[in-house]
Design a protein around this nucleic acid. Structure first.
Lengths: 256, 256
DNA sequence: CATAATTACCACTGTTGGTGGTGCGGATTA
DNA sequence: TAATCCGCACCACCAACAGTGGTAATTATG
């Protein structure tokens, strides 16, 4: 057998067909070959090999001299992936500007005032987006409680947090004791940290006004959160956070 | 009618179905609505509306209160696009690391020495990738001749060029007189420029050793280039470039 | 409380585009 | 002429989607 099922899945997701995967992985494993040998090694019908090869060349995964018989050379996976990313990003950017230029004016005209002030937000990515919205409008104070520290959140938040800090926003983060040392360190660059042994739900409070409460789920895709702009809910959450905060141990860096 | 064909195409490319497009654009145009009204405005069969709406919510294009009747709210297009980008990038990163971790060792083991030293490179993106490879291995001297200045190239090249310059590489760029002032200015940040009235083909020469010759085409996707590591071809190209260079006018910034 | 109206949702069918799979035939070279 | 190279044409299959039917749940109304 050729490559692991996981890698095959990954390549499929990246937009290769199963023939293309067989062909490329054969080239990578056994080195440059002619079409015939590729067909033998990869079990791709010979009459399809040229379709597949030209498609792979177009997509940037292989190169070919144009001799007779042609030999085909795999590019390094890193190069292929980068070419692919360039192509996709370029296409997407074009689409995005097109969409924004036409739809955003319509959206703005309506105004978005009719939005209610409490929402159920479903799905990890929607939650992250909401969180980002919150961070962008935060001006004086941010409180975060998180039972588990998600890489995704750190990645997303870090740059925004830095700018927040430079604007003088007080940032407090509370996590559980099992959080990784690395995460804590990177957080401590922009916020105060306290740790506690147990925590039941996560959340964020911005300016004691906006609240996001995370209701964890087994799968990230089915995660649910409540976002609210209600003063009362915000007050309640703020109070509760204060209580927990006072009941938690300050975290001090090993280097401090 | 609702939105332009171009935007519809763009949204399709971004992964929405035609029902989803109708639904979302109706929401953007007429503001938040209930399912029934959405069905009427968008001409999506009522019995399908909930499927479509929940799919749109999952993808991050709309939000909903969960009342009876539910009202549905479009998110700003910019937000939707960003959520989408986050999701795609995350998936892709996972796939990429998986692929690299498994395939790159195989690739390295074979070594890529068997590669011939002259190549036909097809397609704009493959050419750009090749160019990047050249830039990365360039150590002392770079010559570029370009009849038309492509934004894509500038974008790609600028950061690399800066590092090249800081490593002491001499960079010379030759273009035609009709090149835009902006482009020339940004190029002049990292290289010497000369302009001439006419030029028939573009190309790049790195360290008088590696050559890339551009054979223009009508469509960018069918562009073709020749890349070579042949000393003789490189010498010929270098000579020719020198001749053209001496025959061209230096470009001086208006601000200089 | 019973009934009608509305809302929310489910199940099925036909179509379509893309891919896997197979055969053939023209072109090129020895 | 024979063998190999290259590519086209075709069919079967599958997943995703447009489109159509209907049913359960909830709410309004007499």
């Amino acid at each position: 057998m050729a490559i692991s099922e996981k890698t095959e899945r990954a390549l499929l997701d990246l937009g290769l067909t199963s023939y293309e995967i067989k062909t490329y992985s054969a080239l990578v494993q056994y080195g440059p070959m002619t079409a015939i040998n590729i067909s033998k090694q990869s079990n791709v019908p010979y009459s399809k090999v040229y379709d597949v090869l030209s498609s792979l060349e177009r997509k940037g995964w292989i190169e070919t001299d144009h001799n007779r018989p042609s030999k085909f050379y795999p590019k390094p996976p890193s190069t292929s992936l980068e070419t692919m990313r360039m192509k996709i990003d370029a296409d997407r950017k074009k689409n995005e500007t097109q969409v924004i230029s036409e739809l955003f004016p319509l959206f703005e005209k309506r105004g978005s005032k009719e939005r209610p002030d409490i929402w159920i937000v479903r799905g990890q990515f929607n939650i992250l987006t909401k969180l980002k919205e919150m961070l962008e409008s935060c001006t004086t104070e941010l409180m975060v409680a998180t039972p588990l520290v998600l890489d995704a959140i750190i990645d997303l938040a870090a740059p925004l947090m830095m700018t927040l800090k430079s604007k003088g926003v007080r940032i407090r983060v509370m996590c559980t004791e099992n959080a990784g040392e690395n995460h804590l360190k990177s957080i401590s660059k922009w916020g105060e940290i306290r740790v506690r042994s147990q925590m039941f739900a996560g959340g964020a409070i911005s300016d004691s006004r906006e609240v996001l409460i995370l209701l964890g789920a087994d799968e990230p895709s089915s995660a649910v959160a409540i976002w609210a702009d209600h003063p009362s809910l915000a007050n309640f959450a703020t109070n509760y956070f204060q209580y927990l905060w006072n009941d938690s141990k300050p975290y001090s860096r090993s280097s401090a």
